[in-house]
């Protein structure tokens, strides 16, 4: 499972795709797609708060970098925890 873990990052079917959200924040989406996201925001407090916060990042590149760092750190942590568990067993 661990190799394929890198593939993910994406979205569950009904929720917003992370890449799409990044594109929205960088104003790279069509009018229709932007509206779709804004419509989701109106129904989704988490997404609404998130966009409000993400818009405050000075550089969208830094923002993407933070996300990657956080995911890498999480991944390492989880592998460590699983190894510890195996030893205990």
């Amino acid at each position: 499972m661990s190799d394929s873990l890198k593939d993910i990052l994406g979205s569950s079917n009904k929720d917003i795709d992370n890449q799409k959200l990044m594109d929205y924040l960088s104003h790279r989406l069509s009018k229709q797609d932007s509206h779709d996201i804004e419509k989701m925001m109106a129904d989704d407090d988490l997404l609404n708060d998130a966009v409000e916060g993400l818009e405050q990042f000075k550089s969208k590149k830094d923002m993407a970098e933070y996300v990657e760092q956080l995911n890498n750190h999480l991944q390492k942590k989880i592998i460590k925890k699983n190894q510890r568990k195996k030893k205990e067993n």
Binding site: S12, N18, L21, A50, E52, G53, L54, M63, L70, N71
Partner: peptide
């Protein structure tokens, strides 16, 4: 990891 970006925003 599905929520990293959203949580960062919150």
């Amino acid at each position: 990891q599905r929520y990293t970006l959203l949580l960062l925003g919150v």
